[in-house]
Amino acid sequence: MDPQDLQRLVTQTMPYGKYKDRLIADLPGHYLAWFAREGFPPGKLGALLALMHEIDHNNLRSLLDPLRGR
Rank of each mutant, 00 (worst) to 15 (best):
M1C: 08
M1G: 09
P3V: 06
Q4K: 13
Q4M: 05
Q4T: 04
D5Y: 15
D5K: 03
D5P: 00
L6M: 11
Q7V: 10
R8H: 08
R8C: 05
R8P: 02
L9N: 00
T13C: 08
T13V: 13
T13P: 02
T13A: 07
M14C: 02
P15Y: 10
Y16K: 14
Y16L: 11
Y16S: 11
Y16I: 01
G17K: 06
Y19R: 05
K20F: 06
D21H: 15
D21M: 08
D21T: 04
D21F: 13
R22E: 12
I24L: 09
A25P: 02
D26R: 10
D26M: 07
P28G: 03
P28Y: 02
G29V: 05
H30T: 06
H30M: 10
Y31H: 15
Y31D: 05
L32D: 06
L32N: 03
L32M: 08
A33N: 05
W34S: 06
F35Y: 15
A36N: 09
A36Q: 14
R37I: 06
R37E: 03
P42G: 06
G43Q: 05
G43C: 06
G43Y: 14
K44R: 11
K44M: 03
K44E: 10
L45H: 00
L45C: 07
G46Y: 05
A47I: 00
A47H: 12
A47M: 12
L49V: 04
L49S: 10
A50M: 07
A50T: 02
L51C: 11
L51Y: 04
M52Y: 04
M52I: 01
M52S: 09
H53K: 07
H53C: 03
H53N: 14
H53I: 04
H53T: 02
E54W: 07
E54C: 03
E54I: 07
E54K: 15
E54R: 12
I55G: 02
D56A: 11
D56S: 15
H57F: 14
N58E: 13
N58Q: 12
N58V: 04
N58F: 12
N59Y: 15
L60C: 06
S62M: 09
L63Y: 10
L64D: 12
L64K: 15
D65V: 11
P66G: 02
P66T: 06
R68N: 01
R68P: 00
R68T: 05
G69T: 09
R70A: 14
